[in-house]
Simulated scan of single mutants.
Amino acid sequence: MKISNFKTYTKDNFARVAATITWEDRNRPSEEIYVATTQEFAKDLSCNPNTFLLACTIVAFHYGEKRIFIDAEDAEICPELRDGLITSMHWMRSWYKIKRNIVQIEAKTNLKVSNTAKPERAGMFFSGGIDTFSTLRNNRLKFSLEHPASIKDGLIVHGISDTNLEEFENAVISLTPVAKDAGINLIPVYTNMYKHIKDLEYKNFEFWRFYFGGSALSAIAHAFTPRLNLVYIASSSEIENIEPWGSHPLTDPNYSSYDLQIKYDSVYLSRLEKTKLVVDWDIAFKKLRVCDILVLPPGYLNCGKCGKCIITMATLTALDTLHKTDVFPIKEFSKDLLLKANLQTVLEKAKYRSLIPLFASIGRQDLVFWTKYILARSRVKSVLKKLAKSF
């Protein structure tokens, strides 16, 4: 895979950095991939070769490209990042027991250290879900605003989920009061670095989920190195139940460079502990956005039907707080919703298992029974799947 034609330009009143991606071992057309933001933050965007290296290396590794070749005289990558990407590919090859070759990275490395000092400034990826709200809340409880690890900016990204542009803009409007309350700048970001390979996805966004999430977010973060030197990616799991995943504490920090540290945040907190942090933050609780469904019910931030919505509503019911928010079209959590939960990962099972004593404490024996039922159902499915695979 070749990366060339680095450029910075304005399109439709958005500042954009881009590069052309040319496949060498697959018969696919060349594509310009980009990261863009509004003119307000144009000065903070850079055409950073590290961005496009991160956007392409795990893609090349997964889809059979032999190398990444950066075809530009003045484009230099960070040697720390180069080693980090190689390390992450080795982790993935070990996790998933695959025989793919490690992609050869052919690019000039930056051997000089810049003498230009920039202020220490931390940012985070800010989607409005439980994980990101709890990361921000926890950060505010731990650090003073003057601390260099205190979050100053929230990057909210369009182009890495199925949310359409209208729903994304509604989310930006909805989350603006939360950002103001927390004292952070909300920075809208637009990209196609995932869209341009979605036709290669096999099912259920498995490439994003198991390989690409952390490196894609880190690629976006590196485009903002003139502004940021630390970016948090909120953990999606806790230590006790962590599994191989596309965003993981063993891989995400490897996507750091000399200019930018990537931090996988709050891996010691359980989903239940994170939810309690959000429930106690009133303005965030009333703007909670956990859903990535393409078309949402009018006036709502969540569909109330997908897996993310179901586990969040179940948790809020267990905490006796679902009735205190209007972000879901459903006010009463029932067994019918619970039965729609499709538990596949260790983390998903752990989330529901942790709710059983809470359901019991609020007198919802019906939900205790049906939670145990879906956990048993998932165990049976796992056994049958293993048997089918062995034969």
Rank of each mutant, 00 (worst) to 15 (best):
Lys2Leu: 00
Ile3Glu: 02
Asn5Gly: 03
Phe6Ile: 01
Phe6Ala: 04
Lys7Asp: 11
Thr10Ser: 08
Thr10Glu: 12
Asp12Glu: 15
Ala19Asp: 02
Thr20Asp: 15
Trp23Leu: 06
Glu31Gln: 08
Lys43Phe: 02
Asp44Thr: 00
Cys47Gly: 12
Cys47Lys: 08
Leu53Cys: 08
Leu53Asn: 07
Phe61Trp: 12
Phe61Ser: 05
Ile68His: 01
Glu80Arg: 12
Glu80Met: 13
Leu81Lys: 08
Leu85Arg: 03
Met89Trp: 03
His90Asp: 09
Met92Phe: 15
Met92Arg: 02
Asn101Val: 04
Thr109Tyr: 00
Thr109Pro: 00
Thr109Ala: 01
Ala117Glu: 15
Lys118Gln: 10
Gly123Thr: 01
Met124Leu: 03
Met124Phe: 00
Met124Ala: 02
Phe125Trp: 05
Phe125Ala: 02
Asp131His: 06
Phe133Lys: 00
Ser134Tyr: 05
Leu136Ile: 05
Asn139Glu: 07
Arg140Asn: 13
Lys142Tyr: 02
Phe143Trp: 15
Phe143Asn: 15
Leu145Tyr: 03
His147Thr: 10
Pro148Met: 02
Lys152Gly: 12
Asn164Leu: 11
Leu165Tyr: 04
Glu166Arg: 07
Ile173Val: 12
Ala179Arg: 00
Asn185Gly: 07
Thr191Phe: 09
Thr191Ala: 08
Leu200Gln: 10
Phe210Asn: 15
Gly214Arg: 03
Ser215Pro: 00
Ala219Asp: 09
Ala219Phe: 09
Ile220Glu: 05
Arg227Leu: 15
Arg227Glu: 14
Tyr232Phe: 13
Ile239Thr: 12
Asn241Leu: 01
Asn241Ala: 03
Glu243Tyr: 07
Trp245Tyr: 10
His248Pro: 00
Asp252Phe: 06
Pro253Asn: 11
Leu260Tyr: 03
Asp265Asn: 13
Ser270Cys: 07
Asp280Ala: 15
Ile283Leu: 13
Leu288Phe: 13
Arg289Leu: 15
Arg289Gly: 13
Ile293His: 12
Pro298Met: 04
Asn302Met: 13
Cys303Met: 10
Lys305Phe: 13
Gly307Pro: 08
Lys308Cys: 12
Cys309Met: 09
Thr315Val: 10
Asp320His: 13
Leu322Met: 11
His323Arg: 11
Lys324Asn: 14
Thr325Asp: 10
Glu332Met: 06
Phe333Ile: 13
Ser334Asp: 11
Lys335Thr: 15
Leu338Arg: 04
Leu339Lys: 11
Thr345Ser: 15
Val346Ile: 14
Leu347Gln: 14
Ser354Phe: 09
Leu355Asp: 08
Leu358Phe: 12
Ile362Asp: 06
Gly363His: 10
Arg364Lys: 10
Asp366Lys: 02
Ile374His: 07
Leu375Ser: 12
Arg377Tyr: 01
Arg377His: 02
Ser378Lys: 00
Lys381Met: 09
Lys381Asp: 14
Ala388Tyr: 11
Lys389Val: 12
